[in-house]
Design a protein around this nucleic acid. Structure first.
Lengths: 215, 215
DNA sequence: TGTACATCAGTGAACGCGCGTTCACTGATGTAC
DNA sequence: TGTACATCAGTGAACGCGCGTTCACTGATGTAC
């Protein structure tokens, strides 16, 4: 990792060569997306933010979309990490951990709006960016695994399809995040905390499967 | 409604005056949004589509955002109409009608992608567009009313807050629509019909409230 | 019925802007010997 | 340890583009009398 060498504080220039431009461009893209949405990000301005000429980014990314896709991939990786941490292998109790997972979903949308927007609002085609597809799958796999484990606590006869469970929770969490959590002009007012809304939804959902919410 | 006068088929020009430019611009905006997303819509291209000079739209809309907001308002109105029709006053059975409502939600996202995008993706500030806020509220009111009525079938003691019910259903439907229904590069694959996923989700949700899904 | 006139909805040219991307180039880096 | 050289990561100027919006204007419409 030559870019973390001495003399470069992470954002400064060393001279003619930037030393860490790739990372600096990704940081700049995140800042721009956070400030103006994915549509507000431009290569030219990212270069400006990084203190570099408008042509420089093309040494590191094929085009604007490639840079955006890289941001989204990193976002999915961080997302997966946060979700996995919250789920914590289903400890101490699967149902409780499942609720923590939901909270972590909303927390990510709240705390990482730029990543979230790059992942879900940038309309990047999964087909043309296989790494993106893979990263997205890794994140969903955490949800899927959690649903598996929660479903396994139900007697075999009335056990719900865990894939469906995962999709339901994902959809509700994503809907709440889109409508009520994410900052920006389009955000709707909510007469309660988004986390409460999701938690109540997950609880009711699990109840319908015969799963108690408490200890 | 002078714009529906004789000699104008709805898209043709009559001469120096267009005769129906306001409507034509809205149609053009819808076509552009459908083709390229809300970010792909421009005043200049809408004018071109309507067969008019780039300055003409400014006789009818203060600026680009005003045109987009008008599209969103009409979208909400149509949305409310479709939802109300599906709900049908809760007939024949509230729970069944509630499921129809959910299906209508997804159908709208599927059949009217341009309206849906203008409503939910264009990041228009509700605060600066009161008509938009009002139209959005009218649409949500349908959902709210339906939830009220469904909740009323539960014995008073264990009756859930209908506002919360409405928000849960809205969130799940919106999440499914965003992730799996809406066309475009960002759409995810789903191993079942989106309608089935939502229906199962609504059904489970209602079960947890002690409401049977059948007759 | 005819005419003067106000109003309205268009025109088209122009402005300043910022973008994505390419190109020939050049300064810095690091490696082979 | 020193030097020639290949490679790499930048520069900066330029291209063509399309946009939003404004402006003075003009042709069409409709109304008062």
């Amino acid at each position: 990792m030559s870019w973390s060498g001495p003399g470069d504080g992470g954002s400064g220039r060393r001279g003619y060569h930037h030393g860490n431009l790739r990372e600096a461009l990704i940081d700049a893209a995140l800042a721009l997306i956070a400030a103006k949405g994915p549509a507000g990000f431009t290569v030219a301005e990212a270069a400006r933010l990084a203190g570099v000429s408008p042509a420089a980014p093309y040494r590191h990314f094929r085009d604007a979309e490639a840079l955006l896709a890289e941001v989204a991939v990193r976002g999915y990786d961080l997302f997966a990490e946060r979700l996995a941490k919250a789920w914590n292998g289903g400890r101490p109790i699967p149902v409780r951990a499942f609720e923590d997972l939901g909270r972590a979903y909303l927390a990510f949308a709240r705390d990482q709006p730029a990543y979230y927007a790059a992942m879900f609002d940038s309309h990047l085609a999964m087909e043309t960016h296989p790494e993106l597809q893979a990263a997205g799958d890794r994140a969903f796999a955490v949800l899927r695994e959690a649903a598996d484990q929660v479903a396994a606590t139900v007697p075999k006869g009335r056990r719900p399809p865990s894939l469906m469970m995962a999709l339901h929770i994902w959809s509700m969490a994503h809907g709440i995040a889109s409508l009520f959590v994410r900052e920006g002009p389009g955000r709707r007012k909510l007469p309660m905390a988004a986390e409460e809304l999701l938690e109540a939804g997950v609880l009711l959902y699990l109840q319908s499967l015969g799963l108690a919410g408490g200890e």
